[in-house]
Amino acid sequence: MATLEEIEARLVAVEQQLLLVRQDAAAARVLAGAADRDVSEFRQALNAHTKTLNALRETQLEHQRETRDGFAKVHQGMNEITGLLTQLIEQDRK
């Protein structure tokens, strides 16, 4: 059977280990809190980037529609010019 001194020594060792475990737990809580803040900040940045990209997409789609409309008007204008030139050439032949 263990002597009183051995039991006391073991108790002191356990108390020292418990102190280290508590310190480690406190450090782990601090790190977890920092990681949580980092993730939150990353999420906010990601949401902001997503909103920016969505706005850019809408702008690009609008510009694409405007460009198509512009080219359609140019094509119509070219057809009118071609028609007028054709009329002039036919009048010139007569």
Rank of each mutant, 00 (worst) to 15 (best):
Q91W: 00
Q60T: 13
L11T: 14
T59N: 08
A13G: 02
A13L: 03
R93I: 04
R93K: 10
R37I: 08
M78Y: 04
M78D: 08
L84K: 06
T67V: 07
A48F: 01
I81H: 02
H49T: 05
L31R: 15
F71R: 06
I89P: 03
N79V: 06
H49P: 01
N47C: 15
R57D: 12
Q60D: 14
V74F: 02
T50M: 08
A9P: 01
T52V: 13
G77S: 13
R68Y: 09
L19M: 15
Q44L: 12
G83L: 11
A9G: 03
D92R: 05
E8S: 06
Q64H: 13
A45F: 10
H75L: 13
L85S: 03
T82P: 02
R10Y: 11
H63V: 07
L88S: 05
E66N: 06
L18Y: 04
H75R: 14
H49K: 11
L85K: 03
K94H: 01
F42K: 13
E6K: 00
Q16R: 14
A28G: 05
R65K: 06
A34C: 10
F71Q: 09
M1N: 15
R68H: 11
H75I: 10
L4A: 11
Q17F: 08
T50A: 09
V74L: 09
A27R: 15
Q60M: 15
I81T: 02
